[in-house]
Design a protein around this nucleic acid. Structure first.
Length: 236
DNA sequence: TCATTAAATTGTT
DNA sequence: AACAATTTAATGA
């Protein structure tokens, strides 16, 4: 199994299309971009691969170019709690990278994904040189805090329909995942892993949500038509 | 480019 | 957990 240490041994330059998937890149000035591009590494992650584990030291700030990751932590009772999924355009680990601490959660690939990494040193260099980058990271931290709180609520909910709805709404957070439009490529199996329900139950929930015109289910993905309804879930 | 086949995903029991 | 139906991806002419 791949771990963080081996993840970026094979590096290659990012294509312009891939750079386009990095929301903070366009905020940088010319020389800052050069520095970022020089350090950015990219790698494939297979389903089940861990990008980082609780307790490991931080060496990279991670971002998803393509694919889907799961962020989770093991609580005291030994049970796994899923915080959120990380769709393309999502970056994470800034909290721990800032303090140069160890990871407080696990990040696992739900499907074959393309992951980018920025070394912590470069991360700090950007913080020291770019106001826009600072603003981005600050926003990121703030939104993530909101997500963690929301994740606790979601975890306590018993109604599966609402769990699925809220989890989906979290995935469509426009601040954390700006690259994401109205369509999300996620199979019902992947969503099931994410929310911790059976695929059947997720399928049923999606059908219900679709009946209320909050989403449209498509083959291998879905389209959000009413994000507000998903968040509130008043109709369930 | 099209037709055929394999693989993945969905909907249902 | 298992099934059939459907959709997509891959293959090769």
């Amino acid at each position: 199994m791949k771990t963080e240490a081996s993840l970026f041994q094979r590096r290659r330059p990012l294509t312009p299309v891939e750079l386009d998937m990095i929301p903070w890149f366009k905020l940088l000035s010319g020389d800052e971009r050069d520095r970022a591009v020089a350090d950015l590494k990219i790698s494939d992650a297979q389903p089940g691969d861990y990008l980082c584990r609780t307790g490991r030291p931080v060496t990279y700030w991670f971002g998803v170019i393509d694919g889907l990751l799961k962020m989770s932590a093991d609580n005291a009772e030994g049970q796994t709690m899923t915080f959120t999924g990380v769709p393309p355009g999502g970056w994470f680990g800034e909290g721990t990278a800032l303090k140069r601490e160890v990871y407080r959660y696990n990040i696992q690939a739900l499907r074959k994904s393309l992951v980018a990494g920025l070394h912590v040193d470069t991360f700090h260099w950007l913080l020291d040189h770019s106001i826009a980058f600072n603003r981005f990271v600050m926003n990121q931290l703030n939104e993530r805090l909101g997500q963690f709180i929301a994740a606790r609520e979601i975890d306590r909910m018993t109604n599966p329909n609402i769990r699925v709805a809220r989890s989906l709404a979290a995935l469509f957070n426009p601040v954390l995942y700006p690259g994401l439009g109205t369509v999300l490529r996620i199979t019902q199996q992947e969503l099931a892993y994410l929310v911790g329900l059976s695929r059947q139950r997720v399928n049923e929930a999606l059908t219900t949500l679709a009946a209320h015109r909050a989403i449209q289910v498509e083959y291998g993905g879905l389209r959000v038509t009413d994000l507000q309804a998903l968040r509130s879930g008043y109709f369930l």
